[in-house]
Amino acid sequence: MAKIKAATQEIYMPPKVTWKKDLKKNGTAYLFFAPMFIYQVLFAYLPMFGILMAFENFKVNKGYFKSEWVGLQHFVTLFTSEEFPRALRNTVVMGLLNLTIGFIMPVIFAFLLSMIKKKKTKRLIQTCSYIPNFVSAVVVCSLIREFLGHDGALTGLLSALGFEQQNWLANGDIPVFWLINTFMNIWCAIGWGSIMYVASIATVSGDLHEAAAIDGATRFQRLTKITLPCILPIIVMMFTLQVGLVFVTGFDKVLLLYMPSTYSTADCLQTYTYRLAFSSGANYGLSSAAGLFQSVMGTALLMISNYWNRKVSGMSLF
């Protein structure tokens, strides 16, 4: 840990230059950056103006300035609705499961990959693990339906283990849907999520491993004493970013998999808001209010997580 801190302190800081000089010197780089900057401004920052909708009875044909201003009415509607506490609970639980089990699995997978000696085997496994990430949510959910339906392969396996033969997706008991959602997300993201860690592990000096091996360190000891500390900054950074996404539980997949009989455990904030706002007519104000609530919560969690990381490990994202 001390080594990492020291390394951080020794980073070279270039002398300050005026923006004119900088632009003249790095003009080409800025030009390359310009499209992405424009893209971000147009599609990430300007749309934030739409937050106004959360406080208006927004009508498309009236626009932002002519729609009726309703203040916090949409938030009151959202927070006082009967099913809001249940949706919030499900969102948080599914988010936490994704943050814990879902976060750890790619790290473990990366460690396991790094231990494979044969490059071809490693690449093959890596490629196979990436594929689910590129499969559309509709296809993934169709597969899950097939596997977990009454006569599905996984249902058959579970039945062989003593569980009741049933359509698992229709089971509203805790924690069935939560686990299905978590493991489905892991299956989809484990390969893709491990890329950063695999890349980081590859940068760890082989000399350290060699020296440790000569000193008699086992594989596991090298993993925990060398590899893990070396990639810890990356893990912390990824975790901090992930915390901000706790409230994003994979709306599309939940929407495709849940049903009224499993609302009790599957209904999350996004699906609930979607039904509330768009089942009869389009209530853009309410859906914007729900979106804003989730964004604010996500940002707050990100800040807390960053602060906590800085406090505990001395490393932070910003």
Partner: peptide, 20 residues
């Protein structure tokens, strides 16, 4: 090299604007 870089970035920028 500098000319190529400027040309490439300008083309990228123009393509973006055209797309938008």
């Amino acid at each position: 090299k500098r000319f190529c870089g400027v040309a490439a970035s300008a083309a990228l920028g123009l393509a973006t604007m055209a797309g938008l």
